[in-house]
Nucleic acid binder design. Structure first.
Length: 786
DNA sequence: GTATCAATGATTTTT
DNA sequence: TCATTGATAC
């Protein structure tokens, strides 16, 4: 078969071994996507499997689309179009839509995005009079999200003594009740949030065996990409669906697991071997992407992690250039360096703009980079950040669509009932919301059936009735008009178009243009019927759009640009020249993510992902000072810089210029990399290895972390306080879930660790003394190894 | 009920 | 720094 040409032995084996459970451990750059696509094509073309019976799950729409394209080139477009290939969320949204009635949802249920979820939570907090500083909406949502991803429903949550105890220990004993209320309100609104798409699929299969069996039988072959990033909800769906035919292939790389923060469980990939005892394991270890230096550097880094599957990534590619490290004075300086370096590389080596990527840990870092690139007229594209679909004007129009399709959608209603202004203000809304909660009804139903019983003045009543009438008129068009015709009608009739057109400021014009762009998008969507016989309707569009991200909006004719993105969104991509910026302690690894060893290991995997994106050359940069929340803070170089074997690094001539010794006795002297220099005015002293507690590379965590608080800088640019190592706080191995001993309370279990050094706090449950909150600074906890 | 201005507080990563 | 919230005046 010619589609097998050019595959190496391991790749070929992974393609041809079609049946039974298979796991493909695919190192970075080892041709994973190729194997997956050829494998699917092979199933169809050689084994004659009906594409309708193949389920292929990915993490991003982009990955799904690209794979489909590649499969189409082998088996033909029409065949490929019938594959069930997409993200977990989009595939199961599709299935849920077909089965929604079984769970009591309307078929045109809304998908709440993160903002909607947060807004629901805010509403409840306000009504319940809870302090939104104690119950931060983001955190409440994160907690609910993690619960759902671990298949813990609101009842289970409230019945789980440990969870509830943990909450009340942290003074947030209403979390369970909040979760319950949140779920109730979403359901009442006929809405599922992102996590519900997976959670409810689990419910569907659990409570409706006949439905589960239907899908079990349908999906004869199941393939899962990026298996290391699946959470319990996803894992369980896959396991359930695969139980019948057991033709399951999972592909992944434990070293690239970077989504634990949202519930991904690396154990899923580590346990596959136990789950399917007669599985076959393929290891793809040859890297085709990167130079020898890059592969070596990445290996030396990831070697510091403890939780991983042993494997050796190797390459036949030449060594290539060493990895460069650049120290910048400030974040703007860093941007200027990167921009200039891109400019000169571009000129000297004739590299197109799209050959470069700038990767950073947090979206906030993009600004300095953007400014620098703009100054040199280098075209760039930012991935992530505020996407098109998050713009206010877009969300507003989408809210009209949502309300039309599902009038119970409370968030949509709140958003637009008075936009454009039609005299329905805050007071009216509050009355409506109170009444809705009293009766347990969606606002829409109140307005529709009980408008006259709510005690509104005639004027207000008229405004409300007009609104209802308008939405109802849109609803009658749902079945008679195409998505585009209806969308355009709504944009005009609602008054949104007029409102935006009237604004002649540059921003206003751009908002109007965005509106037009959305409508164009819907037109394209309406017209695109290649895989369907019936015209696509507005509800179809909404499901699609809710799960779309900015990355799905790329214009193929305008893609010769430098890419700017977070490391997370760079996963799966590759670029000849990669700049990884902001390699500073507290930023990368991120302050919020270095509480436990597992967290730190995830940060390290993230850096591993970043490094392995590069084909030709990687450049690592860090700044000595950086604006954070608007004020200048001093930064220390990232520990990750130390963790790469220095033989893969280029140590710049800057060393000599700074008057540092370099090899006075023929190569045996201490080679001090520039980020370790002692003398720079700006360089905040990091405790020397001898002074600081040794960092054990196996546990990869300082036995007693130096304070990593951001230090304010005074006018002379010197840190106000030296990095203090006082207050040894974190005992070795202390993390959530371990058993500890306290000199007064005896043995206890650590439920939670929070705060930042030196104010790290642990919530510990002692059977003898109950829940205690302990400042690690004072409580001498001893970790017990059981 | 609406518009304007000052104060406030947030930045980890995404479907 | 910037975006969102709260108070004030219209």
């Amino acid at each position: 078969m010619d589609h097998l040409m050019g595959l190496n032995k391991a790749q070929k084996a992974a393609v041809e071994h079609t049946d039974g459970p298979n796991m493909v451990i695919a190192g970075a750059g080892s041709g994973k996507t190729r194997v997956l696509t050829v494998r699917i094509a092979h199933l169809m073309a050689v084994k004659g499997i009906d594409p309708f019976r193949i389920l292929a799950l990915t993490f991003t729409n982009k990955a799904a689309r690209e794979m489909k394209e590649r499969i189409a080139t082998i088996v033909g477009r029409g065949e490929a179009a019938n594959l069930w290939m997409g993200t977990f969320h989009s595939i199961f949204a599709r299935i849920l839509r077909a089965e929604a009635h079984l769970l009591g949802y309307p078929p045109d249920f809304t998908i709440y995005d993160t903002d909607d979820s947060r807004s629901v939570i805010k509403g409840i907090l306000k009504e319940w009079g809870l302090d939104d500083k104690l119950y931060k909406p983001n955190q409440v949502h994160a907690r609910i999200s993690i619960a759902k991803n671990n298949l813990i429903g609101p009842e289970e949550y409230m019945n789980d003594g440990e969870l509830m105890a943990g909450d009340s220990a942290s003074g947030r004993d209403k979390l369970g009740a909040l979760y319950m209320e949140y779920a109730t309100r979403c359901f009442r609104a006929g809405a599922m949030d992102f996590d519900d798409l997976l959670f409810n699929t689990n419910l569907l299969f659990r409570d409706h065996p006949e439905t589960m069996v239907k899908y079990q039988q349908r999906f004869q072959y199941i393939l899962v990409d990026e298996y290391q990033d699946t959470n319990l909800a996803q894992y369980n769906i896959v396991r359930t669906l695969a139980a019948r035919h057991e033709n399951i292939t999972v592909v992944g790389d434990d070293s690239q697991s970077i989504y634990a923060f949202r519930g991904a469980n690396i154990q899923n990939i580590l346990n596959f071997r136990k789950d399917y005892e007669d599985h076959v394991l393929f290891k793809l270890e040859q890297n085709y992407r990167s130079t020898g230096n890059l592969v070596g550097a990445a290996n030396s880094l990831i070697d510091k992690n403890r939780d991983r599957i042993e494997k050796t990534i190797w390459t036949q590619n030449g060594d290539g250039e060493p990895i460069r490290v650049h120290r910048a004075m400030s974040d703007n300086d860093e941007g200027a360096y990167v921009a200039h370096d891109i400019f000169s590389t571009k000129m000297q080596r004739q590299v197109p703009d799209k050959g470069f990527a700038i990767l950073y840990r947090t979206n906030a870092q993009s600004r300095a980079m953007e400014e620098a690139l703009r100054k040199l007229n280098i075209p760039y594209r930012i991935y992530g950040g505020t996407s098109f679909y998050q713009r206010k004007e877009i969300k507003d129009l989408l809210a009209y669509f949502r309300l039309t399709c599902n009038p119970k959608d409370e968030e949509a209603l709140k958003r637009i009932i008075n936009y454009p202004a039609r005299g329905i203000g805050q007071t009216t809304m509050e009355k409506l919301m109170v009444a809705a909660n009293e009766h347990g009804l969606p606002i829409w139903e109140l307005l529709h059936a009980h408008l006259n019983d709510l005690g509104f003045h005639a004027g207000t009543r008229k405004h409300l009735a007009d609104f209802v009438l308008m939405i109802d008129s849109f609803r009658t068009m749902l079945t008679t008009h195409s998505a585009y015709a209806l969308a355009e009608h709504i944009a005009r009739t609602s008054g949104m178009m007029r409102e935006l057109f009237a604004d002649r400021t540059p921003e206003g014009i751009s908002r109007y243009d965005n509106l037009q762009e959305l409508l164009n998008g819907i037109k394209e969507f309406s017209d695109d019927q290649e895989d369907q016989d019936t015209p696509r309707t507005l509800p179809d569009f909404l499901i699609d759009v809710a799960l779309l991200t900015d990355a799905d909006n790329e214009d193929p004719n305008d893609n010769d640009r430098v890419s700017l993105m977070t490391v997370h969104s760079a996963k799966g991509l590759e670029f000849p020249y990669v700049y990884i910026v902001g390699l500073e302690e507290d930023l990368f690894p991120n302050l919020m993510a270095v509480q436990t060893r597992a967290d730190l290991e995830e940060e390290r995997r993230l850096f591993y992902v970043a490094l392995t994106r590069a084909k030709e050359r990687a450049t690592l940069t860090y700044a000595l000072s950086r604006y954070r929340w608007g004020n200048l803070t001093a930064c220390e170089p990232s520990r990750f810089l130390d963790e790469i074997d220095p033989k893969f690094l280029e140590l710049p001539a800057a060393m000599e210029r700074m008057g540092l010794q370099s090899d006075p006795d023929g190569g045996h002297a201490e080679r001090r990399p520039p980020w370790r220099s002692r003398s720079g005015i700006f360089t905040p002293e990091r405790p020397e290895p001898t002074a600081a507690p040794a960092r054990d590379p196996r546990t990869a965590r300082p036995t007693s972390p130096p304070r990593r608080n951001l230090k304010r800088i005074n006018d002379h640019g010197t840190p106000l306080e030296a990095a203090s190592n006082a207050g040894s706080t974190m005992p070795e191995g202390l993390e959530e879930g371990v058993t500890v001993e306290h000199e007064r309370f005896g043995k206890g279990k650590v439920l939670k660790i929070e705060g930042r050094a030196p104010d790290l706090k642990a919530t510990v449950f002692f059977p003898s003394a109950g829940q205690k909150q302990l400042l690690l600074r004072f409580a001498r906890l001893r970790v017990l190894n059981d």
